[in-house]
Amino acid sequence: MSKILKKFITFYHKLGSYPWFYKFSGIAIPYVAFISLIPLFIGLGWGIFYSPTDYKQGDVYRIIYMHVPAASVSQSIYYTMTIAAIVSMIWRMKMAGIFIKSMAPIGASFTFLALISGSIWGQPTWGTWWIWDARLTSTLVLFIFYIAIISLYSSFSEKKSADQAVSILTLVGAVNLPIIKKSVDWWNTLHQPSSIKLTESSTISLEMLYPLLLSIIGFYLIVLLSGLMAMRAEIAKREINKEWFKSL
């Protein structure tokens, strides 16, 4: 047990090292890029061209293969940013600040994609592009938090104070996450409850669920890929004048 713990602690310390992460991400990026394409293409292709038509909505339901993965990663990214904010506040680990700075624009993009794809689905099915129900509004709040984090970061010239201020804002925004998740259960909304259930059987047929799960996996891998790339670029930006970077 203590061996595993030691290994984990070593890994944690390595994560904090710029040269190590720069080298590691340089090796990992091509592999992640290749692996992420497989579930993404199979999932989206299967979902859009081969999965069966829905009995009630017809073909418009196929937006689910973009909407659900985008909405899922948009919230997960914020969860990981919250963990990074805690690490950044307590241990002042610089890499945690880089993580938040790099992930915020990715999270904002996927939240935007979830909002837009949901809107395009809502027009034919519900009869409206937008409604101020609890699920849609809390997702919009998530998007605004991402934008606020990005703009707060860019308003500082000193990286250290930027990392601390952004961490605090990230923690405040984390309160919104359980609200998004539970909004469809706590209040009555136009948005339906989740079809994929962890504890009981899902209310989406398996022929539709499998491609959906594949595209969710694909979206997570794309997030991993763009996260690695963004963090690598941010390290290069901060360390451009340092000895170790020049000697590369």
Partner: peptide
């Protein structure tokens, strides 16, 4: 009038 969709997805 808005239609409220439920969480059931089934093949036609």
């Amino acid at each position: 009038i808005l239609a409220k969709h439920d969480e059931n997805y089934e093949p036609k």
